[in-house]
Design a protein around this nucleic acid. Structure first.
Lengths: 248, 248
DNA sequence: CGTGATATTGAATGCAATCAAGCTCCGTGG
DNA sequence: CCACGGAGCTTGATTGCATTCAATATCACG
């Protein structure tokens, strides 16, 4: 039930069977949403944390002037706002981009579990920090990368993040987003995204069809994007905390 | 020694005397830096957390193409990367913008202290979440606000953040940044910042001189910026955790 | 009073937004 | 099977904000 999250956390440290089971115990409900349905609204009190089981969602902020900025994509295995429970109100809206299955976790239960399990606690904090690191990288994209780099960079990120949970393989992965959505994430218009996408395609770097991304040569796209995967911190930095073979 | 941080945290919940003293026990060293000196470098292993005591710093990422993007301003009372210790390497460089005094805190000590003090633990998590919220708001600025809104928004934020630690009063506060620095934070050039600043000045909205900001009418600037302070979460959302009068 | 950093101004260029129209694909229902 | 409708994609023309380059002015400080 929490397989993707576990798989992701094991990019940091190897969990024990007990750790893995403990995670599932925090789940208090599971919801299914249709594309366009929202899981929570900006300004609402935070009750539960979301763990994406299947499908994609995104978090966005809506401005008075009509603009909309996506601040995060939520993929399978993503745990949203580990400690958001201390904030009085959600500061963005979470909406499903595809058919979506999310678990709702009790903040109190998570806290108990984390208190009892140092390895798991560190893994969750690692995940949270990686989230902040991704946000900083987005900021760099919006601030300092041009259209081509920006789009290529996002595609690289989404590919790597999916590979970390086993959803990308052999240069292809799901990419269930419209050009409109990409534009809302990259601070541009869908028209411009369209043109940028065409040049990427013309160079034979990526193809984006049927809600799937194909990258024949990932390294080449990474060069165009100025992408370096360090900020995703997938290098098993917590290996010294690994569970013993006997615990797994 | 940790007065600004304490003052900031008390925008969330009232701490006990014991909580306040405990914070100071995590300090293992104190450093003084000159403007332009860096406290840590992108890629370096993370040894200590920084608590800004006095002066300003900023975190930035340097790109191959020469661009530089500031991802955070660090003001007095700011605790940088509460759990960054789980990451193998820092993902940005921290440089002093003024004469700067920072305390270095031991991650392990912080963890011990947090484990023993639920109220303090929550307050620190609140601070961390507020940091993430600020980052999201910056993303919205870079993605969806034009030059004028962007600059006005940043100035409002820096004013409010300083007010939360008692450094802003009566429409004026320190603002020890060059136009170059503002440009590096807002994803623009210093030339354009200069022009934007001039229109803000021409409207009588702000004056920025001698490294100080003066805003005769904060509310008016907030309207121009589309600024709403909710994302700073300064509303004492943790009041139910407040220390009893007898503990203070 | 001199020097380097910071700020200001002007002119030319360019990237991306905007507006508007048409196209393609796909699911639905007659 | 085809007509229809809608969402998403593509294209063109125009506009505008911000960059770039370059020169000059001002300020802070020794």
């Amino acid at each position: 039930m929490t397989a993707s999250l576990i798989r992701k956390l094991e990019n940091f440290t190897r969990l024990s069977t007990a750790d893995k089971l403990a995670l599932g115990e925090a789940v208090v409900a599971t919801r299914n949403l249709d594309p366009g349905e929202s899981a929570c609204h900006e300004g609402d009190p935070v009750r539960a944390l979301h763990l994406v089981e299947d499908g994609w969602a995104c978090d966005y902020r809506q401005l008075e002037n009509g603009g909309r900025q996506i601040v995060a994509f939520r993929l399978p295995g993503d745990l949203c706002g580990t400690s958001a429970s201390v904030l009085a109100a959600a500061d963005c809206t979470r909406v499903a981009l595809t058919r979506l299955t999310v678990h709702e976790l009790s903040p109190a239960r998570i806290e108990e579990i984390a208190a009892a399990r140092p390895r798991l606690r560190r893994a969750l904090r690692w995940d949270e920090q990686v989230g902040a690191s991704i946000l900083r990288e987005w900021l760099v994209s919006l601030g300092r990368r041009d259209g081509l780099e920006r789009l290529a960079h996002l595609l690289c990120e989404l590919y790597h993040r999916q590979r970390a949970v086993g959803l990308a393989e052999g240069g292809a992965c799901p990419m269930p987003v419209t050009q409109e959505i990409l534009a809302a994430a990259l601070g541009q218009t869908s028209v411009h995204i369209n043109r940028t996408l065409q040049t990427l395609r013309a160079c034979g770097l990526v193809t984006l069809r049927n809600r799937r991304l194909t990258v024949p040569d990932l390294a080449a796209v990474e060069v165009v994007a100025g992408f370096s995967p360090a900020y995703l911190h997938l290098g098993r930095a917590g290996a010294h905390l690994d569970a013993l073979p006997s615990e797994i």
